[in-house]
Design a protein around this nucleic acid. Structure first.
Length: 260
DNA sequence: ATGGCTGCTTTGAGCAGA
């Protein structure tokens, strides 16, 4: 079973690249972030024609998350937002059962600047995420928490750690939050297969960050132990960051000897 | 030291991203 996650930074602008990615990688599941569309404007027909079903949780202009699954792989128990009564106006979490795996697509707030209201919102949101997983996700079963966590957990997740130290992406409070998630019973699948620096998943559009190699690993696939024990591969599709009109994030891909 | 790009918005300067 191949699971991927990708912050596309506007599904409308990235539609051609998204379809090409599906054709190229043929993941069983693809978690998406930053759709930036209402559900009615999501390109359902094109996705269906590519052989995928989509569950989306969109909003106008900002945020928006989704899960694609190969047609024939039923998506069940779709949940949007953390729980009934969630008053967060920002669409940042969607979950579904697919092929025996609870798949969660999340888009953690960026945080603006350290100390700002957005930073507080990010911290609060991460606490809610942890509480929601504890209360509503069975981590003894097969679970994949996928998405743009906007956290580079360690120095080896940052190409230029001195430059990013104490920023909203690489900060001791975030390292603690990330380890808190891991402590619930999750495994950072990329680190099962890569001990050295990277693989990076995001490069700023500005400052020639990509050609200069100024990357961070902020997109993750966290798996419960029951799923992670069968993780045979984890990688980043770095080439997707190249060429015309790329997203600033590259897709993350993990393969498990589970399901098909 | 700063800003540098991209996408979006009841079209155009400002917000947001990270």
């Amino acid at each position: 079973m191949k699971i991927a996650t990708w912050n596309v930074n506007s599904v409308r602008v990235r539609e051609a690249r998204l379809l090409a990615f599906l054709a190229r990688e043929q993941p069983d599941v693809l978690c998406l972030q930053e759709l930036k569309v209402m559900d009615d404007d999501f390109p359902q027909e094109a996705i269906r024609a590519a052989g995928y079903e989509a569950a989306t949780f969109g909003q106008k202009t900002y945020n928006g998350v989704g899960i694609l699954a190969k047609a024939g792989a039923k998506m069940e128990n779709v949940a949007r937002s953390f729980a009934d009564g969630d008053d967060d106006p920002q669409a940042r979490v969607i979950a579904a059962d697919i092929l025996g795996v609870r798949v969660v697509s999340i888009y953690v707030p960026n945080g603006g600047e350290v100390g700002s209201d957005k930073w507080t919102y990010k911290q609060t949101w991460l606490k809610r995420l942890s509480a929601w997983i504890s209360a509503h996700v069975d981590l003894h079963a097969k679970v994949a928490i996928c998405g743009d966590l906007n956290i580079a957990p360690e120095a080896r997740d940052v190409a230029k750690p001195d430059r990013w130290k104490n920023s909203v992406l690489f900060h001791p409070d975030l390292t603690a939050a990330f380890h808190g998630l891991i402590g619930l019973g999750l495994v950072d699948t990329a680190r099962m297969h890569h001990e050295s620096e990277g693989p990076f998943t995001w490069w700023d559009y500005r400052m020639l960050a990509f050609p200069k190699g100024d990357g961070l690993r902020i997109d993750h696939i966290l798996a419960s132990r029951a799923l992670a024990s069968g993780c045979t591969e984890a990688r980043v599709d770095r080439d997707e960051r190249k060429g015309a009109q790329p997203s600033d994030h590259a897709p993350v891909i993990a393969v498990f000897n589970s399901g098909p």
